[in-house]
Structure formats: structure tokens, C-alpha cells
Design a protein around this nucleic acid. Structure first.
Lengths: 209, 209, 209, 209
DNA sequence: AATGAATGAGCGTTCATTCAT
DNA sequence: GATGAATGAACGCTCATTCAT
């Protein structure tokens, strides 16, 4: 997220327009997918002329990229905050799981776009690959893996493969939330139960003892 | 899957050609996505003329549907077999998790298409929605939920929300495998470790005791 | 019309098949037009395989031509018979008008195809022009014009431009009947009234005297 | 026909472009028929890009419809003017016959398209039927039939079936002119003779008295 | 002779991008 | 900077014709 304080009025206005366009596009992308959303629709929704869009973005693809990029940045911020603010891994899981749920409950479109981007190979802009974001992706990965390793070192959790737990946890969390969004069941009141359920199963397993 | 034994030679050949086309299309769809795959590419890959494709399928969309449908049917078969063949829920999780891993290790394209179909809202054929398969989906859901409920009744696992566990497990399994496919890490030798890891965490949780 | 008596059994059968195909095609052409009728539809209606059609006709266009040609021949036969069998022009108009009405009441498809062929420039086979039949057309024209001239010479009718009367009469008769066909009003009982009306107006005009 | 006076410059230009496209299309349709005219040909003739056509018309069919519609409107205007401006049926026939000849001498393409549309069942856009214009058609019919009835009431013409005379006259006039167009004989100098001939025959019949 | 699966040129239509105003 | 008309490459699909059986 760029720092709006250091910008001139002109630049601030430009940034704001960019964000308006991205917001309009994000909503449409999440509803109809990248390929089935036309630039005209974006222009109408953003209340600009088609040509104007091209003063802010070089292509339709760039709008998509910017949205993903933005979502990445905000996700990273959430993660790094949680990593830094929690004294233990257990606490981290509790806080982070909740934060992620809450963030995407408020930003459903972005979750859908993100998941769609991750899973829908070849959909989205033709030559946009997850690689494009791998740098940021890696940073995020590393942060989480590091936290897991610390948890193991501190004997908070059992000695399991941190790499696998990372895949397990992140591969679980986002699809789980996405599923709720698709089913229209990501409602505030129920969120707590889902969070508790996930944490309970991850922490304690399902077996009777 | 149709029974090839009862068919005439002609029908068998026709079915085989259909499957050749579906296979070619599945590979391309999984690599480039539905929208970025042209009929000409499918025709070339399947070694047919463009027009020939239309002797077997009414539209590009129908090819896609047939692939999904086929994958659904085979997934259902795996699930129902596992449900019936296992005496306990724990045993079921063990066998089914392995079977799913193995099946999609051999059918990576289908997994990618399936996940993409589930997650990529608006991508794929414009007016094809998950609803189209909801009947089959429901049958599959019910089978699994029933097995979970039995496991709870038999006190194999703790008294947790079966609905949530269903979302948890299926929402975990497929993205987990898909992720490995994307990363090119779904290799036979490593599969066992992933299976064991997943079962271990689900059964026992991650906490030290 | 070929003489079936002089043909071998084989040739007779071949001719019969040709006519079956032409009949099927004529019905479809009259209902859906040349361009919107597919060879498959013709094949199905004629109860032959698609390929078989090509043993009897070189192309779709040739089927169309044959139908027109056949209709021309039969029309010519009617005209020449009427010309020869009637002692006066007035009698000729009476008999011929009735014969034409009756013929096309029984062969509505052919009338529609014929009128459509005459009027719908560029519809029908792309490079088929009325010129293709101008030889036959001319013969027909000449016969009628000759009869008109005789009528004028014999002072049956006033001294008017025979060429114009020809355009007037033929340009009137066929569209008049075609119109009734389109409106679904070419029913046997009403035919007489239409015939009488046409003859009355042509003979006597509409003015009160 | 829209009133160009009340339009903004932009709208006027847009209307003009529409008419340029319609004019180009009308020429091509009249030469090659609807089905054998490609959009590319229309675009080239109209000196636009293919895509541009679609800024003015939703489909090829809509261009066709617009042409027909326009011709209908102008024909109606001519008819209603003649109906209103003439004191008697005889006068009406004289004036209207001339006006129609003159109008279509200047708008040959439109006559061909119109006649082709009326007669060529199934040609033209597949799902466009004469019914689509029946409302306008009926209005036109009624106007003419009413005028005929008045003529009978006023004893200008003999007591004949007005419905039949309507079919007779309109079923005669348009094919007659069309025929001249097809033969390339609708030249200004000769027009008068044709008009006089038609009126003479309709008024007085052909019989010697 | 009869068949119908295979073929691919050809068409209508879409839409991201450009550019003159 | 803002606009939207103009553009044309690209695609899905059709169907007359061929040809191996």
C-alpha cells in the first residue's frame, strides 16, 4: 500500500482513481471471472470512460495484477503483524485464523479472486502465472514457516514436518473460507464456531482418547 | 462409465474417439484453462479435424462438462467403494485418503480441472455453474457425512460437528493435493509421507501432550 | 420429363430415386429455403444416406436446379397444351388460368420454390441465375406472346402492347397464387371465385360504364 | 424516419453512419442476397471496419430488418399521402401507381429486397418472418382497402370484391415493377408507357367492345 | 451402390486496445 | 486528462462435400 501522506494532491487523486477502478474490477472479476468481464463493464461500474481506464492501467491484465498484488500486500501485513504480535505459535494460530476469517469476511471479492488465481490454472490473464508473485509469496511462506519452526523448537507442538504443516494449514484455511463464501455462509455470527472448530481439530485431532 | 462389453464395435469405437477427444481437451484445459484453449488446439492434439469434434460433442462447453462429469463419476465410485469396504471411520480415512492421492497422481489434469471448476467463479463455460452437478455433489456429500456420523456414534472420534468436519476434510484434501500438483511435487515416493502427515494431524492434532 | 418407357429397369429405378430425393428436397426448400435446408435434412426426409444423394446429384445446387427444371417442364407442358387446345385467346385465358391455379394448388411447394427463385435474387445457389433457364423461359414466353398476338389480330382483344400484357398477366398470375399460398388460402372451394375475379378484371376492367 | 432537425450533431452523425451502412448493405443484399452477403463485404462497401458495424447494429439480421423497416415506412408514407391527397379512387390509382413506379425506379435495391423478403420463404434471416412486420403491413392494407371500398360506394368502379382487388392490384404492381428491374428495363422514359398500360387494363380490361 | 464419419473453409460476432477530438 | 468510436484479430461453430468401407 503506498503511503498517501508523501504524495502531491495530483498523485493522491490519481491513486484514488486507480483504487476506484480496481474496486469496480474486483467486484466484477469475483462475480463473472476475469475472462467474462469486459473493459466496458469495468468502465461503467467505475463511472469512467473506457479510454480513461488506460490512463491508469496499461491493460486489463494489469488491473488484475494490481488487485492480486494489493491483496497480497494486505495479507502479508496481517500475517507479519500476527507473527510479531503473538508470543507463541498457539497464540499465533488463534489470532491469525481469526484475523484471516475477519478480513475476508469483509473482502469476499478479493478472496474469490485470490483463490481463483491460485487454483484456476490458465484462467485469468493468459500469461500471468503464480510465478509473477512468487517473490512475495515466498516472503509470506518463510515468515509462517519460521513461526512454525519456533513453535516446534519451543515444544509447543509436536515434532512434525513444518513444510507439510504449512501446506496443510494454508491449503486448508483459504479453501475452507472460500467454500463458506461460495455457499453464502460466511456470516459474522457463525464465524466463531468455524474458527473454534478449525483450531480444535488442528490442535487436538479428531480421535477420542 | 459406460459398459463397453455390451456395445457394438461401432459404438465402442465411437466411445473411444470421444474419450480421445476428452483426454486431449482435459490436458489442454488443465494447462491453459477453458477459455484459452481453442477448438483448433483440441482438434490438433486429438488428431482430428475441427468439424469432427462436433460429431462427438455439441459444443466446446459440452466437452468440458463431459470431463467434469466423468471425473465426478469416478470420484464417486472411489468414495462409495471406500465407504462400503471399510469397517470403521478411521480405516475409511486411511484408505480413502490414500486412494484419492493415488487417483489424482495418475489423473493430474482432472484434478486441476475439477478444482479450477470449483473455485474459479465465472471461469469455464459462462453459464455452467457448480449447480449443474449439485445432484451428484449432494450424493457424494451425503455419503461422506453419513460415514462421519457413524464414526461419531461409534465413538471412534470425538463429538464434533460432522458438517464442519466434512468441509474441513474435503476442503483440505483436494487443495492439498492440487497444491502439490501445481508445485510439481506429487511424486509417488513422497505420497506416503503426505498421507501419513495428513492422517496424523487430523487424528492427533499438532499439540504436544 | 423423361420417358420412362424406354428405360431399363435399372435406369427406371435410378430415375425414381432421383424423384424421391427431389420431392423431399422440394418440400424442405419450400419450407425453409435453399440456404437453410441442409443436405442431412434432405437425406433424412428422403430416407437415404447423405453420401447416397451424391450418387444421384453432383451437388445440393443440382438438386435445386433439377426441381426448377422439372417445374419448368411441367409448366411448359400445361401452357403448350392450353395454347394448342383452345380456339381463341379468351378461351385460352379461361382454361389456362384455371389449369395454373389447379396445378399449383396441388404443387404448392413448387410454386413457392419457383417464385422464390424468380424474385429472390442471390438467394438459392449462389451462382444460379435465372439466365440458366432463359432458354426454356423464352420458349414459354414466345408461346404465350404468340397467342396474345393472335388474339389481337383476331380482334378478340384491344390493340395493346402484347409484351406488356405478357408481363402484366404472368407478373400477376403467379404472385397472386403465391400470395394465396402464403396466406394459406389456396383452398379448392375458393379457387373458382379467384379465377372468375381475375378473368373479369382482365377482360372488363374495373370501371363502371 | 427520424427527424434530423431535433438531433444533436453527434446523433445526426450517428444516424448518418447508420444510413451509410444500410445503404451499402441494401446494395449488396439486392445483388447477392442476404445469405451470400458477408459482413466483411458490407464493412468494405461502407468503408468501415467490421467491428464498427456492430456499434450501429446488433447483428447482420438487424441491418436487414432496419432496411425492410425503413422501406416499409417510406412506402406507407407514399400510400397514405396518395390516399389523402386524391379526391377519387380513379385519381388515386393514377397518382399512386406513378409514385410507386418512380419511387422504386430510384430505389431499386429496396424493391428487390422487399419483394425477395415477401416471396423468398425461409431465405433472409432464419427467424425473420413476414409476421414481424404484419402490424405495419396491416395498417397499409387497411388504408388501401378502405380507399377501394369508398370507390365502390361512390360508384366509381364496379361492385367487385375489394379484398380480391387489393390482392390483384398489389400482387400485380410490385412484381410488375420488380420484373422490369430484373430485366433492367425500368428506365425513366419507358415508365410512362408501363403506367398507362397498367391503368388502362385495370380500368378498361382488354376486351374489344 | 450405399453409407456416414471426417474434413476445413468460411462466417458472424466479440472485445481489448488505440487514437483523434 | 477524458472520451468512446473505430478497429481487426481471433474464436466457436456450420455444413457441403469427400472417401474409405
Amino acid at each position: 500500500m503506498e503511503d498517501t501522506n508523501t504524495l502531491t494532491r495530483k498523485d493522491r487523486e490519481k491513486l484514488q482513481r486507480k483504487q476506484e477502478i480496481m474496486k469496480a474490477a474486483a467486484l466484477l472479476f469475483s462475480q463473472k471471472g476475469f475472462n467474462h468481464t469486459t473493459l466496458e463493464e469495468i468502465a461503467v461500474k467505475a463511472e469512467f470512460g473506457i479510454g480513461t481506464i488506460y490512463n491508469y492501467f496499461q491493460s486489463k491484465e494489469e488491473i488484475f495484477k494490481s488487485i492480486i498484488d494489493n491483496t497480497f500486500d494486505r495479507s502479508y501485513e496481517i500475517l507479519s503483524q500476527c507473527v510479531n504480535d503473538t508470543p507463541s505459535l498457539v497464540e499465533f494460530f488463534k489470532v491469525y485464523t481469526r484475523k484471516v476469517f475477519e478480513f475476508y469476511a469483509d473482502n469476499k471479492e478479493e478472496l474469490i479472486i485470490l483463490v481463483s488465481f491460485y487454483t484456476a490454472i490458465g484462467e485469468g490473464p493468459s500469461n500471468l502465472r503464480r510465478d509473477a508473485f512468487s517473490a512475495k509469496d515466498c516472503k509470506l511462506d518463510e515468515l509462517l514457516k519460521q513461526k512454525i519452526k519456533e513453535g516446534i523448537k519451543n515444544k509447543e507442538i509436536r515434532k512434525i514436518n513444518p513444510e507439510y504443516l504449512y501446506i496443510f494449514y494454508h491449503g486448508l484455511l483459504f479453501p475452507y473460507i472460500a467454500n463458506l463464501v461460495y455457499l453464502g455462509k460466511l456470516n459474522k455470527p457463525e464465524i466463531n464456531q468455524h474458527i473454534n472448530f478449525i483450531l480444535d481439530v488442528i490442535f487436538n485431532g479428531i480421535l477420542v482418547r
